[in-house]
Design a protein around this nucleic acid. Structure first.
Length: 598
DNA sequence: AGCACGCCGACT
DNA sequence: GTCGGCGTGCTC
């Protein structure tokens, strides 16, 4: 690296920018920089930013600025982790830098360098055992016991910080999530890298923690949509862990009472191993038909009885309400108005003057009569927590009824009630208006409803009751939970997904255009849709406006694209000109791969 | 993403 | 005559 010929050592650095190309810097003689190391370097105008060195090479220093300092004296990411980050960026059509930096603990505030050893390189190429999904009621206890016996390290990914905190306490593990302080997070990261702690618990931000092999990777509540929140890394934690386990030969354990359709399909295909038990303690599941009732009172007879019996037995009852969903149902036959082409529930527009399909954007007036039974009681309605609370108070004046007090005899709330841990199980759980979940205008509504019922059944103790008030008492989600039979649910659900070309059989992608004006957004989305049109294997729905109709908010347009496994590559090739900051006059094109809601 | 440069409207 | 709008292009 003699300076005579101008050849010096150069670091290629990626930053948290929407630009998917590295910036090159000269490495001053006073610094040693290796791939995977965080560095601080000048970028644009004035000021420095923290980035990650992804490559070190010899080159011509002409016109290059110098790295200013290293954030840590050793790499924070292994070569394998860098490569995994590259894969996540490719799969989600985001930049390497924004992906990597979202997966690292915050840089230290002070410039004082921490003394640490380099992370241990994962054993690449080792054959990984097939990933497992543990579904039995005892799965959490078994996990805690199994991790206690594990010789190597373990990385446990929780869906949210509350869960991470609980599990860190339970496993006596180092905590690495945004609920922990920055210093604690960094300490946990490097302690794990050095093999000094055996178990690390975190949320998504911990997915790249280096662990000495053999390590066990764990995904808690696999079915929880919180595993793919908005923002980088823009990929589901399940997919990241499946990839990581395969790359570094780790065992992967996913926990879910009722797994996602994606994991279930993998288990059917034999790439994921199901671990279940025989019949577990299970409540009596009662589907209570609300036809003709539920207009003036939120409780059917079975739920009223359950409240009476349980309060007499000193047990508490949860009443679960749904957030009003905007789908349109018939109060006579229980049918939901659906788009004939897409199969998803049509949604009442906010101005209430029509209804629209979220996927194909077809809009229509709300019909006078139900297309199924001819009934004229078509309406979106629901019992919210406030109304339910007041009504139950009136009906049971001697019971404590509350929306906030966990010790109340009857507690009313949304589905989040079931996720709050409690010392004793519920005596009964009642779904006031289960159709509110079935009617959510999303192709995953049935799956979500099934998983919700399953978790409710698990949260009810033996001898308890699960009461489902619905116009669809024979719905296959209810039947499957009553029979404690996951397979029965997916035997119905998977063919539906397959026939309509939904995940897990095809991949989905949202392409949206945001402009200053509705016309600008429309122009841009039409151009983007034009670039995607005619690509072999893609199915594209017509553009539709997002947000409130009318107003100024219509400056967002979206198309839904379905395609094969290599959808990211197909879309990125076709839309490259839109993603490389060219068309700013009309707005910005954004791509969401594998959307999990709406 | 931020930021600087650059070319057209209403204001002290 | 300026101040300032944001459209366009760049950052090693």
């Amino acid at each position: 690296m003699g300076a005579l010929d101008g050849r010096v050592v150069i670091a290629d650095v990626v930053f948290d920018l929407p630009l998917d190309h590295p910036f090159s810097y000269r490495i001053p003689d006073s610094l040693i920089v290796t791939p995977g190391q965080r560095v601080s370097a000048p970028l644009g105008g004035r000021g420095t930013r923290v980035g990650v060195a992804v490559a070190i090479r010899d080159g011509d220093a002409a016109g290059l600025h110098a790295i200013e300092r290293v954030v840590e004296p050793a790499p924070i990411l292994s070569a394998g982790a860098l490569e995994l980050g590259r894969w996540i960026a490719d799969e989600s059509l985001s930049s390497w830098g924004s992906t990597l930096l979202a997966l690292l603990p915050p840089p230290p505030r002070s410039k004082r360098a921490e003394v640490l050893a380099p992370p241990i390189e994962p054993a690449r190429g080792a054959a990984a055992p097939p990933p497992e999904v543990w579904m039995d009621v005892q799965r959490e206890d078994r996990l805690a016991a199994a991790l206690g016996d594990t010789p190597g390290g373990a990385l446990v990914i929780a869906p949210d910080t509350d869960s991470a905190a609980r599990w860190a306490r339970r496993l006596d593990a180092a905590r690495l999530d945004s609920g922990a302080g920055p210093a604690e997070r960094r300490a946990a990261w490097f302690a794990a890298a050095r093999g000094r702690v055996s178990i690390v618990v975190g949320t998504r931000g911990a997915l790249l923690v280096p662990l000495p092999p053999p390590a066990v990777l764990v995904l808690l509540d696999e079915q929880d949509p919180s595993h793919k929140p908005p923002g980088p890394p823009r990929l589901h934690s399940r997919d990241i862990l499946l990839r990581r386990a395969a790359l570094d030969g780790s065992r992967l354990i996913m926990l879910a009472g009722a797994p996602s359709a994606e994991v279930w399909q993998k288990s059917v295909a034999g790439t994921v191993t199901r671990v279940a038990d025989g019949p577990a303690p299970w409540p009596e599941v009662i589907a209570s038909d609300t036809r003709g009732i539920l207009r003036n009172h939120p409780l059917t007879l079975p739920l009223t009885r359950a409240i009476e019996n349980m309060s007499r037995a000193g047990k508490s009852v949860a009443l679960v309400v749904s957030r009003s969903a905007g789908a349109i149902g018939c109060n006579d036959c229980g049918a939901v108005l659906r788009c004939p082409a897409c199969g998803v529930a049509l949604q009442l527009r906010r101005d209430r003057r029509g209804m629209a399909c979220r996927l194909c954007a077809k809009t229509d007036a709300v019909p006078e009569r139900c297309p199924g039974c001819g009934g004229h009681r078509l309406q979106p309605f629901g019992w919210d927590a406030e109304r339910v609370e007041a009504s139950v108070r009136r009906r049971f004046p001697r019971l404590t009824v509350s929306r906030s007090d966990p010790s109340a005899q009857v507690q009313v709330g949304t589905a989040a009630l079931l996720r709050t841990p409690r010392p004793r199980p519920w005596g009964a759980v009642g779904f006031v208006w289960f159709d509110g979940f079935l009617r959510v205008p999303d192709f995953r509504a049935g799956e979500r409803a099934f998983q919700l019922l399953w978790s409710a059944a698990e949260a009810v103790g033996t001898g308890g009751r699960l009461i489902v008030q619905t116009l669809h008492p024979d719905h296959y989600a209810v039947a499957a939970v009553r029979g404690q039979d996951r397979d029965a649910f997916y035997r119905q659900e998977l063919p539906f997904r397959s026939e309509l070309g939904y995940p897990p059989f095809r991949r989905l992608c949202h392409v949206s255009a945001r402009g200053k004006t509705a016309a600008g957004a429309k122009t841009l989305i039409d151009e983007a849709a034009g670039a995607l049109a005619g690509i072999e294997g893609l199915t594209m729905y017509p553009p539709m406006a997002l947000g409130a109709p009318g107003a100024a908010a219509a400056a967002r347009m979206r198309v839904v694209v379905k395609g094969p496994d290599d959808l990211p590559r197909l879309v990125s090739q076709a839309l490259r000109p839109f993603l490389e900051r060219g068309r700013r006059s009309h707005g910005v094109v954004e791509i969401e791969m594998d959307p999990v809601n709406s």
